[in-house]
Design a protein around this nucleic acid. Structure first.
Length: 397
DNA sequence: TCTGGGGTCCTAGGACCC
DNA sequence: TCTGGGGTCCTAGGACCC
């Protein structure tokens, strides 16, 4: 019995770093991390070679967004602070983030997939789900391989992505999104893993619970405290116990996930719900002493969100702010307007009212402005692309 | 030597309305 | 003095993801 659906999860391998290696092929095989600000651009020397910054002695608040595989071998990973990474891998090359370029490669790899299989769900800059169920040949068996048809399709996708971008990706193909997301990690980089529900006990149950997309650090720690560390152990728990521990909704979802059950469709179109801009300061700012700087930053953030809304053709009715204090505590305030807007001055004024509702005793490390409850702006042209591409500023594994 | 920026979804209490 | 139930909107916080 072939599975009812064939869903692929395609994940670009070390995406930002791999794009940079296309530009700087001499870094091939070396530990490289992407992150931080503009300050560490490579310098072209008179003899034509380039001089790269290394992590050694890095000072600042940045984090690693992507690390090459040789860098990961040195114990540095996405999300790690650059100063901590510098202690572990001082010799690693440090490159600044170049979103323009990553977005360009993102469009290219998605177009390459769409040429062959059009039912695509965008999951950010470097990964997608693809519904292969109705692709010609997907259900066909090939000699000695009952799933040879869908395997051949996945190989075609990988080849087309490489032809269009020069980059490798990893694909998992299974009956649903949950399992495909896990399977795409199995054989990285340049991997291809095909699983059916028959593989659940053998391939999925031995894995740690944290491999389940949607089961984060909090739920993972709570399960660990209950003595549950593997997906198999999670699958042994009665549904009642999980519901009692995690609530009706999340508990039932945990139970299904552990049993490989996931009926979510591949969603080919979505509308944005909110847009925001935020910034972490180089040093923590004081509400009174640094008032001029804070005011100017606040206005800039409001203006940037307004420009983002206008460029993409949206207006929003809920204006909000976000502050993070020196102790990393985060607060938000928002308010709803009578009419949706994308006007910078209106957003700035409403955000200012929100700010008045916050106790500004502690020093501030982050400030953000958000517009939610979005609608398409009246008279805005239809979106150019079928896929809504979120302006994801980063990708963590 | 702490921890970026941009998102989505869920929960929960209170207001307000029928 | 006491006693409803349901629905929606608003706001704040938090978990989680890329």
């Amino acid at each position: 019995m072939p599975p009812r659906r064939w869903i692929a999860h395609l994940d670009m391998d070390a995406f930002y770093a791999s794009v940079e290696l296309l530009r700087y092929p001499e870094l091939q095989g070396r530990p490289v991390v992407i992150g931080g600000g503009r300050r560490h651009q490579p310098v072209l020397l008179p003899d034509g070679t380039r001089r790269f910054a290394t992590l050694d002695g890095y000072a600042g608040r940045g984090v690693i967004t992507t690390a090459t595989y040789p860098a990961r071998d040195l114990g540095v990973f996405s999300g790690m602070g650059l100063m901590k990474a510098a202690l572990r891998a001082p010799q690693a090359v440090l490159l600044p983030v170049d979103f323009e370029q990553y977005r360009d490669y993102s469009r290219r790899f998605k177009a390459a997939v769409a040429e062959l299989a059009p039912v695509i769900e965008d999951r950010g800059i470097d990964e997608i789900y693809i519904d292969l169920t109705d692709q010609p040949g997907a259900q066909e068996a090939v000699a000695h391989d009952p799933h040879g048809g869908v395997r051949a399709l996945a190989i075609d996708l990988k080849n087309n992505v490489r032809r269009a971008t020069g980059l490798s990706c990893s694909i998992g193909v299974t009956p649903n999104k949950l399992l495909s997301k896990i399977a795409s990690e199995f054989d990285k980089p340049d991997g291809l893993t095909l699983l059916t529900l028959d593989d659940l006990a053998g391939r999925i149950w031995p894995l740690p619970v944290r491999c389940i997309n949607g089961l984060g650090p909090k739920a993972g720690a709570k399960l660990a405290a209950l003595g549950i560390t593997s997906v198999g152990e999670l699958a042994q728990q009665p549904s009642d116990l999980l519901v009692q521990q995690f609530g009706r909704s999340y508990g039932a979802w945990l139970f299904d996930a552990a049993h490989g059950i996931d009926e979510r469709p591949v969603v080919t179109h979505s509308e944005p719900v909110s847009m925001s801009r935020e910034t972490t300061f180089e040093r923590d700012l004081h509400a009174q002493r640094d008032k001029p700087a804070l005011t100017a930053l606040f206005t800039r953030l409001a203006t940037q969100v307004a420009e983002d809304l206008q460029r993409k053709g949206y207006v929003g009715r809920t204006i909000g702010i976000k502050l993070r204090f020196e102790d990393f505590k985060t607060v938000t305030r928002d308010m709803s307007l009578d009419l949706p807007t994308s006007d910078a001055a209106t957003i700035r004024q409403a955000a200012g009212l929100c700010l008045k509702r916050v106790d500004l005793g502690r020093r501030i490390r982050l400030l953000g402005v958000r517009v939610g409850a979005l609608q398409r702006a009246p008279g805005a042209t239809a979106p150019a692309r079928r896929l809504h591409e979120p302006d994801t500023l980063d990708t963590l594994p």
